[in-house]
């Protein structure tokens, strides 16, 4: 009984941490740079499919199956999702800020369409199976297998967190925030805003791709249904609840929201009769939507909120200047 519980807990945390990776990617785009991505699910899907194509054994009925090691799949996933982000960013970044939102929404629609219809590459609605899973040698012992996967994902999240924290307090990260707060001032100081935004958008997209690959290899099977708009909404809820602009908040938000999601799912599952399950799931998503709006209205900072000072040269300043600890959400100048 306790072993079952431990195995479930390990499984739950592994899934939550894979969401944490996506949320960290979104935090680079939105939290740090103020770029609104409504197509998160699309970028995650690009990563998942790229990695699946690279690592699955050769399949006669579709293109690819190159049988490469998992780590190559992960690298390929980051590259593919990063390149797609770069292309979308290059297309819209010069224009109004909400054109990027519309274009990313379009990307998610088109990725979904390709996953469904390009049967010879993506396997169509049935998706791709037999994706190699890490630690298959432990597969005989479910608990050990879950713990090994959990450890791997925890390591990925930790490495990513340290890397992003370092990057955030580096000159590059500080320029991103400067551009987000006041683009004209940053440009006047000689920082090419467009190039920095593109880099941040591509980096965030690549991280989402990595998350897609990690999920695909953990579950061992992918299908277009995994990448519906609901995924995008969940990730947004995670970032907003945790506190956008804060990497620890992104991870915390992913675990908290995933826990609430799983919990409310099982409550709804036990309260509503069997014929109403699909409708009850819709109610669950509707509540997420209301929650998202409520947080935007009443607590835009989320649980942890953003640290306003990231440079170690300014550590003593925050209390002296009240304007630096105000309650405003991340804002970008009217484009």
């Amino acid at each position: 009984m306790i072993l079952d519980l431990a195995a479930y807990l390990a499984f739950f945390l592994t899934v939550a941490l894979s969401y944490a990776v996506i949320t960290l990617g979104l935090n680079v785009q939105w939290g740090q740079t103020g770029l609104f991505n409504v197509g998160v699910a699309g970028f995650v899907a690009v990563g998942a499919y790229a990695s699946a194509l690279l690592t699955t054994p050769d399949a006669p009925d579709r293109f690819g199956g190159f049988g490469l090691p998992i780590i190559v799949g992960w690298a390929g996933a980051m590259l593919a999702a990063g390149l797609v982000s770069l292309a979308v960013g290059a297309l819209t970044m010069r224009l109004r800020s909400d054109y990027l939102a519309i274009a990313t929404f379009g990307v998610a629609v088109v990725v979904q369409l390709c996953a469904l219809n390009l049967q010879t590459v993506t396997g169509g609605p049935f998706g791709i199976g037999f994706i190699p899973r890490p630690f298959t040698s432990f597969a005989g012992d479910p608990l050990l297998f879950s713990l090994a996967n959990l450890a791997l994902l925890a390591l990925v999240v930790l490495a990513l967190y340290l890397f992003l924290e370092r990057l955030l307090s580096s000159p590059w990260g500080r320029v991103l925030r400067a551009i987000r707060e006041d683009e004209a001032a940053a440009t006047a100081l000689g920082k090419p805003a467009l190039r920095f935004r593109l880099q941040a958008f591509a980096l965030g997209g690549a991280i989402m791709g990595l998350a897609g690959a990690a999920q695909a290899h953990f579950i061992g099977f992918i299908a277009p249904d995994n990448y519906l708009p609901t995924l995008t909404f969940q990730v947004w809820a995670m970032l907003i609840v945790g506190g956008s602009g804060n990497n620890r908040g992104a991870i915390l938000g992913a675990v908290v929201v995933w826990a609430l999601w799983a919990l409310s799912g099982s409550v709804i599952g036990s309260v509503f009769p069997a014929g109403w399950q699909a409708r009850a799931a819709a109610l669950q998503i509707a509540l997420i939507g209301v929650g998202l709006c409520a947080i935007l209205l009443w607590r835009p900072r989320g649980i942890l909120g953003e640290r306003r000072i990231v440079s170690r040269h300014l550590v003593t300043a925050p209390k002296a200047n009240p304007s630096l600890v105000n309650n405003t959400p991340p804002e970008i100048p009217h484009a």
Binding site: G34, A278, A282, A286, G289, L297
Partner: peptide, 28 residues
């Protein structure tokens, strides 16, 4: 005085709630 993009995001949350409320009331 929220930024444009906060309004966009709020509309996105509202869309989610309104659409799924319909699905809850009338099924898909």
């Amino acid at each position: 005085g929220s930024a444009v993009i906060i309004l966009v995001m709020a509309s996105f949350g509202a869309a989610l709630a309104l659409r799924n409320l319909l699905e809850f009331l009338f099924s898909s």
